[in-house]
Design a protein around this nucleic acid. Structure first.
Length: 424
DNA sequence: TCTACGACCCACTGTATCTA
DNA sequence: TAGATACAGTGGGTCGTAGA
């Protein structure tokens, strides 16, 4: 790569992707290098929607290497996605990307780079001693450290569930406990400064009993009127919007499942699955309005997600706007009893995610997911949908059925969770 | 080649922490 | 102490890689 880069520069190529350089063992690959009038510009391309501090470190080391190799550097830049861009008929890449000149920031970081490199070299040369760095914020920020598994589990025996898993306990308090030699939740002192929810979670863990706040759960259930419409969307995202009216990374719904639960316990199921390779948002919005009246209770798990999808559809299609916004107003969140810690079991491990709540309440459901043919989780669902476009017509029915079965099980799980809440 | 998994991305919400 | 900001957790994704 280094020799090809050199060759292309000598041949006068003006734009080189993944241009590769080495200075005293420091290897860098510049996403885009532009060369004009004997000056080069560095462009670091990120799929993020903003410039983050860590990107500046990336660019600064590239700048350092190129400067030391004798290049005259005109500018250093970060290119990222503009999430405010809304695609029209044609894609406008000048609007899609934002180019941010970070030359001054990068230059100001140059003086410290030799010290950092020296530090790295010291660590690498010492084959006898491991770096002596204790657990801290740096373990997870800005990224999870590659050595975390070793440092935490092998060196320090931190268990899977520890004081680092206490709900919403900030890293400062986690470190405070850790510095006092407290790792297991069982050892957290009764008088340690925590919120009432955190203290309750700790007590529940210590006592190993299921905690149920019947009053609050009953009050939550009283707000639900029959029939109850259990709703779950499946969506996909694109950094580069494919259809008119889409923004980068917008959640594009392609499927929903709807279980309608009547007061006598009977269930009715409705569903929608888009055709592949087409913009199906209009059809989905139309079907959703046909399936859900504007005056019924709609239940979702972590409804902010469903609401944001529906709100976007309402903005796009004025003819459905009133109906869709009414559905949104009538939506309630099945996650609330677990998020508010009104129902906690030890096996939920402090989480209120449906991934923990469902197996804790209804272990049979894990089995049901495993017995599904083809699609057993969200990741497989996405794969199956994305592959539909490449199949012959007669090959599509089986994966489509798998997708429908998977999504159906999601809303059926919500029905089960609600049933358990009603029968406490 | 397929699958599982981890690291990263998004939006949104609630809570903790910081700062004026 | 109130408002702003940061963090943590939820849902939903994409992509690259290791291993079967």
């Amino acid at each position: 790569m280094i020799s090809i880069t050199k060759q292309w520069i000598e041949e006068g190529v003006e734009n080189i992707y993944e241009a590769t350089f080495n200075f005293l063992g420091i290897l860098v690959m510049v996403d885009i290098l532009t060369i004009s009038n004997n000056e080069v510009s560095i462009y670091e391309v990120k799929s993020s929607t903003e410039v983050k501090d860590i990107y500046l470190h990336d660019v600064s080391i590239q700048y350092y290497v190129l400067k030391n190799l004798g290049f005259k550097i005109k500018s250093a830049n970060v290119i990222h996605i503009n999430n405010e861009y809304i695609r029209d008929d044609e894609l406008d890449i000048n609007q899609l990307f934002k180019i941010v000149d970070v030359t001054n920031e990068v230059i100001s970081m140059q003086s410290n780079i030799p010290n950092i490199l020296q530090e790295f070299e010291t660590y690498l040369k010492d084959r006898e001693n491991e770096p002596n760095i204790d657990i801290g914020k740096q373990c997870n920020n800005p990224y999870t450290c590659d050595a975390k598994e070793y440092c935490w589990k092998v060196q320090r025996n931190i268990p899977d569930y520890s004081i680092f898993n206490i709900f919403n306990l900030g890293s400062k308090k986690q470190i405070e406990l850790y510095n006092r030699g407290i790792i297991n939740i069982d050892d957290v002192p009764h008088d340690f400064d925590m919120t009432s929810i955190q203290a309750q979670a700790v007590e529940n863990y210590k006592s190993k009993i299921t905690y149920i706040d019947i009053e609050n759960i009953k009050s939550f259930l009283q707000n639900l009127t029959y029939p109850i419409y259990h709703l779950d969307f499946e969506t996909y995202q694109q950094a580069i919007p494919q259809y008119k009216g889409l923004k980068p990374f917008e959640q594009i719904p392609f499927q929903y499942s709807l279980h309608i639960e009547y007061e006598d316990g009977t269930l009715e199921h409705k569903e929608y699955l888009a055709q592949d390779s087409v913009d199906s948002r209009y059809e989905l919005a139309l079907k959703l309005c046909n399936d859900i009246p504007n005056d019924v209770t709609v239940l979702a798990y972590n409804m902010s997600f469903e609401k944001s999808v529906i709100k976007r559809l309402a903005t796009l299609f004025e003819e459905f706007s009133e109906h869709l916004l009414a559905i949104n107003d009538n939506m309630q969140d099945l996650m609330i009893p677990f998020q508010k810690k009104w129902y906690v079991t030890p096996s939920m491990n402090g989480s209120y995610s449906i991934k923990y709540v469902l197996p804790a309440l209804e272990p049979e459901f894990e089995k049901a997911y495993k017995e599904l043919d083809g699609v057993q989780n969200g990741s497989q669902a996405m794969n199956a949908f994305s592959k539909l476009a490449f199949l012959e017509e007669d090959e599509k029915q089986k994966p489509r059925n798998s997708l429908l079965e998977y999504c159906k099980l999601d809303t059926l799980a919500m029905v089960k969770i609600l049933y358990i809440l009603k029968n406490i």
